[in-house]
Design a protein around this nucleic acid. Structure first.
Lengths: 301, 301
DNA sequence: CTGAAAGCGCTTACAG
DNA sequence: CTGAAAGCGCTTACAG
C-alpha cells in the first residue's frame, strides 16, 4: 500500500482491493510510533474571531515552520468545553504555547507534562516560562498625548473576560489619575458589538466625555461605530484609542490610534522558550520575556 | 507516572525522580496507539489573516466539537511550503476539510489516503466530495440593484491568487455585460492594501467610474479606503461591494454591501460529508453540496 | 517477489 | 505493592 518497489502488480491489486473492500484506513498512531513524526506545537488562542488572534497565529506559524515545528491551532472559547480542548491537545502535541488566562494552573495539569509557554499571563499568576505583553510604557505615552491634545474627561472601556484578568484597564485608569483626571471606568465584553453598546450608553448619559481608551482595537472599532451613529465626530469631539495595532485599524474612518504589539517579537520569544523547554538543557536562563506595546498615533486620537 | 492507585510513595518518588533526571517525555504516538485517541479533523485554510478564515474556522470548530471531532487548523500560505503542511497533516488527522484551490489533485495525493472534503473548489476541477459556494444568484441580484441605482460605469476588482482560480470575477463581468454594461476588469491580490492601490490607480485614470465590485470584503475595504483618501464619496459618487459578509463590514463608514456566505451552513455540509467519507457506509449519496451567497444591502451600494 | 518476525513505546491485565 | 508479559498497528529488515 505504500508504493514499495518490487511488488508484482497482481499482489498489489489483490492487497489494494482487499483494503478498499474492508474500508481499511492506516492508524496514524501506529505509523507515527514507527516513523517518528514531526514536532507538533499547539497554539492555544481564546478568540479566533478577534483579528488579533490570526495575526499572532500567522507570526507563530511562520516562525515555527522555520524551526521545523508544525503548529496546530486550538481556540478554547469556540469549543463548548475548554478543558476538553486542552485534554485533546495533550495527546497531539509536543509543546503548547498560548493564552491560558487565569486557568494556567488547571490547564497545565490537564496537559499532563506537555511543556507549556504562557502568552501574556495575568500579572503575578504564574512562574512558568512566559511572554509578557506590557502596555504600561505605551499607556504613559498615550496619557501624555491626551493631555497635550486638551482632553478633559476621558473614559476607560475595559474588558472583563471571565477568567482573563488583565492589568490593562487598571493601568490606563492609574495613568490618567496620575495626570489629574477622574476617568470613568466601564466594563464591556471584548467584542465590537458590546463596546458599541456601552459607548452608546455612555454618550446617552449626557456626562461630559471627550476620550475613550478601549481595551483593544476591536472594542475601539465598536466605540467608533457608536459615535458615528450618534453623530459624535472623532477625533474632534471625542478621541478613541485601541490596543493591538491591527492592520484593520488603517481601514476605518478615522484611522485608529492604538498601542501596537509587535507580534513577530512575541512569536520569536515564544519559540525560543519552546526550544528551551523541550530541549534537555536543564533550567532556562531567562524564562520570562517582555514585549512592550508602542504608541501608534493615527487619526482617531 | 499516571497516578495509578496502589503504588507506594517510595516507588512513586523513585520513578518520578528518575524520569525527571532523564528528562523523560512520554511518546504521544505510543500512547495514542494504545488509548485510541480522539478523532482529529484537519482544516486547511489559505489566508488566516483574512477575517473570513477565522469566521469559517469558528463555525467548523463549533460544529465539529458537537460531533466529537477535534479540529486542527493549518494555513497553507503562511508556512513557506504548502506541501510540507499537507504532508504533516497526513500523519495527524483522520480527515481533512479545506480550500485546496487548483492543487486539489496533488495535495490529495500528499494526504496518502486521508479522506478529503473540498471547500469551494474551482469550477469543474474535481469530483471529490465538496461544498460549493455559489455567488451567482447573489451576483444577479446585485447587478439588478446597481441598474436600479443608476450605476453607469462599473468596474470589477477581481483577485488572482495563483493556484486559486475562481469564477467570481468572471461571473460579475458577465452579469454586468448581460445588462448592457462594459465593465472594466482589474486584477489585484486578495488583500486590502493591493485593492486600495489598484483602486487609486483606477480613480487616477480619470475614466468615468461609479461602482466597484470587489472580489471579497477585505478588498472592498481597501477600495473604500482609497476612495476616502481620494476624496471620492461612497456611495454618492461611487458604489462599492464586497463578498463574504464579514461582521467587520458593519464597522466601517459607510457600512459595506456584500454577498454574504452562510458559514454555519458551509460548516454543516462539510461535517456531514466528513462523516460520510470517514464512515464505512459505501458511496456517498450527495457528494457535492451547494451554498448560495445572499445579497446583503448596506450603505456602500 | 512474498510472507512472517522484530520492534517502535506505551497501557493493561496478570503472576508473584 | 511490584515487575514482567502481552498487545495496540504499523514499518523495516530478513528468510524463503
Amino acid at each position: 500500500m505504500n508504493d514499495m518497489p518490487g511488488i508484482s502488480s497482481a499482489t498489489r491489486e489483490r492487497v489494494l482491493s482487499a483494503a478498499s473492500a474492508l474500508a481499511y484506513r492506516p492508524s496514524r498512531h501506529a505509523r507515527g510510533l514507527v516513523k517518528g513524526g514531526v514536532r507538533q506545537l499547539g497554539l492555544v488562542l481564546n478568540d479566533l474571531t478577534n483579528p488579533y488572534s490570526p495575526e499572532l497565529a500567522a507570526a507563530v506559524v511562520r516562525q515555527a515552520a522555520q524551526n521545523g515545528w508544525n503548529v496546530m491551532l486550538a481556540d478554547v472559547t469556540l469549543a463548548g468545553d475548554p478543558e476538553e480542548v486542552l485534554r485533546g491537545l495533550a495527546g497531539q502535541v509536543d509543546a503548547v504555547v498560548g493564552y491560558f488566562g487565569d486557568s494556567a494552573e488547571e490547564w497545565t495539569a490537564l496537559l499532563r507534562g506537555t511543556p507549556v509557554v504562557l502568552l501574556d499571563p495575568p500579572p503575578g499568576s504564574s512562574t512558568a516560562p512566559s511572554v509578557l505583553i506590557d502596555p504600561r510604557p505605551a499607556i504613559e505615552a498615550l496619557a501624555d498625548h491626551l493631555v497635550e491634545s486638551g482632553v478633559r474627561h476621558p473614559a476607560v472601556l475595559d474588558s472583563s473576560v471571565p477568567g482573563h484578568r488583565s492589568g490593562r484597564g487598571g493601568w490606563m485608569v492609574e495613568a490618567l489619575e496620575r495626570r489629574g483626571y477622574l476617568p470613568v471606568l466601564v466594563h464591556a465584553d471584548a467584542s465590537a458589538a458590546s463596546a458599541a453598546e456601552h459607548t452608546e450608553r455612555l454618550l446617552a448619559r449626557g456626562r461630559r466625555l471627550d476620550a475613550i481608551l478601549a481595551f483593544n482595537d476591536l472594542m475601539a472599532l465598536g466605540a467608533l461605530d457608536a459615535c458615528r451613529r450618534a453623530g459624535v465626530s472623532v477625533p474632534e469631539q471625542l478621541r478613541i484609542t485601541g490596543v493591538d495595532g491591527l492592520p484593520l485599524g488603517t481601514y476605518v474612518t478615522p484611522t485608529l490610534t492604538t498601542l501596537a504589539v509587535d507580534r513577530e517579537r512575541v512569536a520569536a520569544h515564544a519559540l525560543e522558550l519552546v526550544a528551551a523547554v523541550t530541549g534537555s538543557a536543564g533550567p532556562i536562563a531567562d524564562p520570562v520575556r517582555r514585549v512592550e506595546n508602542t504608541l501608534l498615533l493615527r487619526e482617531s486620537a
